[in-house]
């Protein structure tokens, strides 16, 4: 969690963020935590996959029948485009790159609990940044498409409601980032408690069911919800 001091007292059931490396910058003591390391690993995996996949796609000639790899990628890309088009209509094509990027990043972050990493999205610093991206894009699109109307829309329907409208706008990024963060954090806490406090025979097959719920199911649904809400917020400002 962003607000916590990073070097925690080691407790028996362990679900805290740990510092890996301490460094000083701008007169402050900063930490490279396992969140950062996890995010690096996931970014590296995504970059590697993107590099290999783009190389492989180039080598397929037009006369060839597409292989399993290319077909799979095309199916996934089409599903993503359909998701964007279903929510945003004709505007979907312009945002499918951004939505696809955050979709893959959040999904891999949520699933990284299966690899034994502490999920980077269980850190409010990461999810709040993602929420801020959404906030910036939403407001940029609002100003671009409505001009000054973006500001005056805060005074609709009557000027008295301006504070409520303003809070409603500011609450959006906080709400979507807290939703993702708290879901992942609850999964990390449950897994940490189970691994830390249960006797050895309870750690044999039962954690598989917990991983299936906390990491796979919850993680996939929250990824979908985050992307969906981002698209809905952007689409609100498009017309």
């Amino acid at each position: 969690m962003g607000m916590m001091k990073i070097p925690m007292i080691a407790r028996e059931p362990d679900f805290m963020i740990h510092g890996v490396l301490k460094y000083h910058a701008f007169g402050q003591e900063l930490w490279i935590s396992d969140t950062t390391v996890g995010a690096w690993i996931i970014t590296a995996l995504l970059l590697l996959f993107g590099f290999i996949a783009s190389r492989k796609l180039k080598t397929v000639s037009e006369s060839d029948t597409p292989g399993l790899f290319q077909s799979g990628l095309e199916i996934a890309m089409e599903a993503l485009e359909n998701m964007a088009k279903g929510t945003m209509g004709a505007n979907g094509r312009r945002f499918v790159n951004y939505i696809g990027t955050i979709f893959l990043f959040i999904l891999l972050c949520n699933l990284s609990g299966l690899l034994g990493l502490r999920a980077p999205t269980a850190d409010f610093g990461v999810t709040f940044l993602l929420g801020l991206f959404t906030f910036c894009i939403v407001n940029y699109q609002g100003i671009k498409n409505r001009g000054f109307g973006h500001v005056t829309s805060l005074f609709q329907p009557i000027p008295l409601l301006f504070p409520i409208n303003l809070i409603g706008e500011i609450a959006n990024p906080i709400s979507i980032s807290l939703r993702l963060f708290a879901n992942l954090l609850s999964g990390v806490i449950i897994m940490g408690l189970w691994y830390g406090m249960m006797p050895w025979f309870a750690k044999i097959a039962i954690p598989a069911a917990l991983h299936a719920y906390c990491d796979l199911f919850s993680g996939a649904i929250q990824t979908y919800v985050f992307c969906m809400l981002t698209m809905v917020y952007i689409n609100d400002k498009m017309e």
Partner: peptide
């Protein structure tokens, strides 16, 4: 998943 949010605020 969206309705869950208020409960998660309590958790936070």
């Amino acid at each position: 998943a969206v309705a869950e949010t208020t409960g998660l605020y309590g958790l936070v």
